[in-house]
Computed example of a mutant assay.
Amino acid sequence: MASIDLDKVLDKAWADKPLPEILAAPVGALKGVSDRDGELLQEAFGVKTVADLAELKYVRWAQALAALDSAK
C-alpha cells in the first residue's frame, strides 16, 4: 500500500484528523484548494467532499490515462 505525507496534501487544520473525517471534509481541506474552488467543483460536478472528488469519474479517467502513459 502506498503511503502519503498528509502534511503535504492537507491544510494544517486537517493534517491530524482521522481518515474518515478527512474523506468527509470539504475539498478545501486539500492543500491548494480554495473555498471558491470547492464551490465551483460542487456547481460543476456535485463534488462536496474529498471522497466525492476521489470518486469523480473524470478524475478516475485522467488517472487511468496517466497510468497508461507511464506504462509505455
Rank of each mutant, 00 (worst) to 15 (best):
E55L: 07
E21H: 06
A66S: 09
L19W: 02
A71E: 15
W61K: 14
D16H: 01
M1E: 03
P18D: 14
Q42L: 09
L30G: 01
S3V: 11
V27C: 13
K8N: 15
G32Y: 02
L30E: 00
I22E: 10
M1S: 04
A44P: 02
S70E: 05
I4F: 10
A13I: 07
Q42R: 15
S3P: 02
K48L: 09
A67I: 03
A54W: 12
I4P: 02
S34Q: 03
V47R: 08
I22N: 10
L30I: 12
D11Q: 05
L10A: 05
K31S: 11
V50T: 12
V33P: 02
V50E: 13
S3M: 10
S70R: 10
A67K: 13
L19G: 00
L10K: 07
A62W: 11
A15P: 03
V27G: 08
K8E: 15
A25K: 04
L56H: 13
L10E: 07
R36Q: 10
L68N: 15
P20G: 04
R36Y: 07
Q42T: 09
A29I: 06
Y58K: 07
W14I: 00
E21W: 03
A13V: 11
A15H: 08
I22Y: 05
K57R: 15
K72L: 12
K17E: 09
D16A: 05
L23T: 00
G38N: 07
A67F: 08
D16N: 05
D35E: 13
L23H: 01
L30W: 02
T49N: 09
A51S: 14
A71R: 15
L10V: 09
D7A: 14
P26V: 01
F45Q: 14
